[in-house]
């Protein structure tokens, strides 16, 4: 296997590592590797170690500038860079919903999207909904209905629940919506279907649906 001269890493290692960008140059010319700061000498394989990118987005109403690794997920940008650890990492594979946040009002799994894809976006996390002593109605309903136990899926459940009621309000149908031409209602079947991307292993589902129903029934 071909070895790159300056690192001793094989080309396959470099690709596997994903941390670098490799560009082979031809004699007599020079090339600039993507994202690399230096012009590489001729006849050498360029190993560019620069993987950082500047990004600006709005988190819970405040503009944040960040220099992040291009591989950093939105989830890790929130948790590890902005220290907004209310958004949880349960699986890092889009399987559990613990990382649910709202991007421009729409809920997404923040582990399945890179931070650099959100330039200019407006993101709402659990911290943007309410604080102890100043709870969002959905947070208050989760407390009064005991819609949580260990608390780890809870921020994702609450963000999802807030977005679900908005989706229903906006007329977005779901798999269980019987009549696609009528406005969907916040029935327990609709709520259960729409919330099913948020796993709660403690099994607080029955209480979570009660909490969401309380909020959906209360006058806006």
């Amino acid at each position: 296997m071909q070895r790159t001269p300056d690192t001793g890493l094989s080309r396959r290692d470099l690709l596997a590592a994903g941390a670098v960008t490799v560009a082979a140059t031809t004699a007599g010319s020079s090339a600039r590797a993507e994202g690399a700061a230096e012009i590489a000498p001729a006849n050498e394989v360029v190993v560019a170690l620069q993987t950082q990118m500047q990004i600006s987005f709005t988190i819970n109403g405040t503009v944040k500038e960040l220099n992040v690794d291009t591989r950093t997920t939105l989830l890790d940008a929130l948790r590890e860079h902005l220290h907004l650890t209310g958004t949880k990492k349960g699986c890092d594979h889009g399987q559990c919903g613990a990382c649910t946040v709202m991007v421009d009002g729409v809920r997404i799994n923040s582990c399945l999207t890179l931070a650099v894809m959100h330039e200019g976006d407006s993101i709402t996390t659990i911290e943007g909904l309410g604080q102890p002593g100043e709870l969002h109605p959905m947070q208050a309903a989760f407390v009064s209905r005991d819609g949580y136990q260990c608390g780890y899926c809870t921020p994702g459940q609450i963000c999802s629940a807030v977005a679900v009621l908005n989706e229903i309000e906006a007329g977005v149908p779901s798999h269980v919506t019987g009549d696609l031409t009528a406005a969907p209602e916040a029935s327990v079947d609709e709520l259960r279907e729409r919330m099913s991307g948020n796993i709660c292993r403690c099994g607080a589902y029955s209480n979570i649906i009660d909490a969401i129903s309380d909020v959906s029934r209360s006058p806006a």
């Binding site: 948790r79 220290h83 907004l84 650890t85 209310g86 958004t87 949880k88 990492k89 996390t125 659990i126 911290e127 909904l129 309410g130 604080q131 102890p132 002593g133 709870l135 947070q139 208050a140 989760f142 407390v143 009064s144 005991d146 949580y148 608390g151 780890y152 809870t154 921020p155 609450i158």
Partner: peptide, 21 residues
């Protein structure tokens, strides 16, 4: 009674092990 850790857990303020910034 409501749980006393409820406000922390529902606002994402309860610190779990990986989150001790």
């Amino acid at each position: 009674l409501d749980r006393i850790d409820g406000p922390l857990k529902t606002t994402g303020k309860a610190p779990y092990a990986y989150e001790r910034h």
